[in-house]
């Protein structure tokens, strides 16, 4: 759905060939997500089937230029109007810690500490990218880095909080 909606959003701005769509998508996401040709063309054919895009006639799929239909425009508007629901509670780390606690693991400190050190190294690595980034870096690159840094930071805070809760519950 993300690829589908992203293609529609790009096509709402201007018509494009399949390869152009792939490049625009990859550039706007700071290179975080690479697409293969199969994904691109299967997405396009589904969008066409649903009447959200249309194309010029051409002898091969690569040469077709795609443009958005009115229904496609409406689909983009409704994507913008719908907040993303990111409330997954199946984060592997969270589940791992919860299962370990429920199993009565005595050395939770070790589990938490190992993860905290690994996450801190990840955070250091992202921060190195940020330090190395030239001031005129592409906006998507910086915004992507911010997202990854904040996520890692949240993970560390959560681990700290787990440790404190476990200590408090052991003391009571």
């Amino acid at each position: 759905m993300i690829i589908r909606n992203s293609f529609l959003t790009i096509l709402a701005a201007h018509p494009a060939h399949g390869y152009g769509l792939k490049s625009s998508f990859e550039a706007s996401t700071g290179g975080a997500w690479r697409l293969n040709a199969g994904q691109v063309y299967s997405t396009l054919s589904r969008l066409e089937r649903d009447g959200l895009i249309q194309s010029s006639e051409a002898d091969s799929p690569e040469r077709r230029s795609w443009s958005i239909t009115d229904d496609g425009q409406a689909a983009v508007a409704s994507w913008y109007d719908t907040p993303v629901d990111n409330r997954s509670n199946r984060d592997e780390l969270v589940i791992k810690v919860l299962v370990a606690v429920a199993a009565g693991e005595r050395d939770m400190d070790r589990v938490l500490q190992t993860q905290r050190a690994a996450t801190m190294r990840r955070l250091q690595e992202f921060t190195r990218h940020k330090i190395a980034a030239p001031p005129d870096s592409e906006l998507p690159d910086l915004m992507l880095l911010d997202a990854m840094i904040l996520r890692a930071e949240a993970e560390i805070r959560w681990l700290d909080q787990c440790e404190q809760r476990l200590q408090a519950s052991a003391a009571s």
């Binding site: 801190m120 955070l123 921060t127 890692a152």
Partner: peptide, 8 residues
């Protein structure tokens, strides 16, 4: 602040 510590 872990994000600040990561500069170290």
């Amino acid at each position: 602040d872990a994000a600040h510590a990561a500069w170290a």
